[in-house]
Design a protein around this nucleic acid. Structure first.
Lengths: 308, 308
DNA sequence: CCCTTGCGTTTTATATACAAAAGACAAACT
DNA sequence: AGTTTGTCTTTTGTATATAAAACGCAAGGG
């Protein structure tokens, strides 16, 4: 009734620790393991039992020792280490953003549960979350209305994003000199320059860097609602990146350049330049998003039908 | 397993319709009733059966006629017309905002379910909602952290509220002359003047008027995230009004005056004056909220202990 | 033909069941 | 005294059960 993804994830984590240990060495204490993997000691104990049963560990009095080197096949596959809930969230978003349904479509919890092979409980847990994202609208005692990933959606998101990011960026210059944010920002700047140098091969690393930059800026606003909103942006980008592979390198180059102007303005505490660079970057980002949404809307509902 | 609050609410609704009908008159069709009460025809049919059993209606061929005048005792009490979910939401918020627990307190779904006499299902449905309100924080596989109704909470809300309301107010002046918003705003202005005239007796009507004004402004921004955020504000005000009865008349007077300046500026399409009036009003509102939060924080955890 | 009612099917709201994970406490071991 | 482990209790994540409500179709009536 409850999956054991936590167990499997922890099992793989312990396996990795085993791998870094010499044969016959003693495992860290249950407490240490539970701390480093951020799970309860109960789970660690279950994992230890499993590792003993697999012949990877053996008990010697109180302690556990590595009795054989773990092989790659010992680990659980990654697909099993995510909770049902997390899996459904991911698959649901992919399905929505992939454009399989259009604006105005009605979503029923029962049907979604069948489609994703889970119980309605999980579905009903996630629907309010997607409502928070602005993707669907609730109609009590009835189905949910899908509002669509439309240009309006993108514009509304960006209207708020611009307000929030500008506000946060402005608050950046008020940070005390000894704030850790300055150091973090300088690191991010260096990473941008490094990525720019190796862009031909490494442009795939950009999304992560992008997220770190914007989160660093948003952090300084110290406002839970602003931070929370960035989760929506982040989700949108994560999945948008998957559809929109075209021109990725060129767009990454532009974004890196714009980011650097923004970062330099932040580090110089130059309010005017911050505003200018921030607006410029968001403008570019917005039109990229709009473009990819509009492309997607032109595609017929079932994109794998042979074209005329 | 599922309460029948919808039935009871609809029953009371039909009862009210019966009350406005002369004896022996024919009831509206099932379809009309279901439309006007916004429930399914299935529910209407069940209600009709109930009304027949209570001797209020009688069947005559296809139609139903009023056979006796409904008495006050025929209606279900209001407490039974709210769904479990709605009841729990209200009670939970009252409990939180009443200051029964302090920041840092851990909330467990199991305990809350016991406390409110429902299943964990309902509690688990609501906790993410309060997270969206910024009141609690999730810790996976474990209890929820209550962040508290603190000055920081109020300040963060107001920082966002100010951005949103100013943005919306500015977009007001771009409305076309024939937009319904102008008419609505003029009505709201008239209501303000009327309330100002009868303030001594009617100040209790202010919260509703306040909500209508701000919603009318927010509507014009035409942004789902901005509208959505106003729900948080609205919730906070609704419950805050309940704690903070002190000086209510005086505060209402101030708010009405500030609102009128704001409304006049909006109707004149005077951007400068809008900004000024809006900021002034939000400043007052913020300090009222902060004052009442700070008062509350000074009170010991159990406020009914006899004072020194 | 459109609207009405009757009736069977599906979906929603809520409670409950139960394995997995977390938490708590005491005995054992430094 | 502070860890470490063994054991027991509670809570969480997820599926399932079931009454209430919504939905949809067919037949009848103006």
């Amino acid at each position: 009734m409850k999956g054991n993804a936590v167990y499997k994830r922890s099992y793989n984590g312990c396996l990795a620790i085993c791998g870094s240990l010499p044969l016959g060495a003693e495992m860290p204490s249950e407490n240490e393991l539970s701390q480093s993997l951020a799970v309860s000691r109960t789970t660690i104990r279950t994992v230890m039992t499993g590792l003993e049963a697999a012949g990877i560990l053996r008990r010697e009095g109180g302690a556990r020792r590595l009795s054989r080197r773990p092989a790659p096949g010992d680990a659980f596959p990654d697909t099993q280490t995510l909770s049902t809930s997390a899996t459904v969230e991911r698959r649901f978003l992919e399905w929505i953003l992939d454009g399989h349904i259009g604006p105005g479509h009605l979503l029923t919890a029962a049907e979604l549960a069948r489609q994703f092979g889970t119980s309605t409980t999980i579905i009903r847990e996630h629907l309010p979350h997607f409502q928070h994202f602005g993707l669907i609208e609730r109609r009590p005692n009835s189905a949910w209305l899908f509002k669509g990933v439309t240009p309006a959606f993108a514009n509304e998101i960006y209207e708020v994003r611009e307000m929030f990011e500008l506000r946060a960026a402005r608050s950046f210059i008020d940070l005390p000199d000894d704030s850790g944010s300055w150091r973090r920002m300088r690191t991010i700047e260096a990473e941008h320059r490094a990525l720019l140098a190796s862009i031909d091969t490494d442009y795939g690393l950009f999304p992560d860097l992008d997220e770190r930059l914007h989160r660093t800026v948003h952090e300084t606003a110290d406002n839970r609602f602003i931070k929370d909103f960035y989760d929506i942006i982040s989700m949108l980008f994560h999945y948008n990146a998957q559809w929109d592979a075209e021109d990725e390198k060129q767009r990454t180059f532009t974004a890196l350049t714009e980011h650097l102007a923004y970062i330099e303005a932040l580090l110089r505490r130059d309010l005017k330049a911050i505003d200018r660079a921030c607006r410029q970057h968001l403008k570019t980002a917005r039109s990229n998003l709009l473009r990819s949404i509009e492309l997607r809307m032109k595609v017929p509902q079932a994109p794998d039908v042979s074209p005329a």
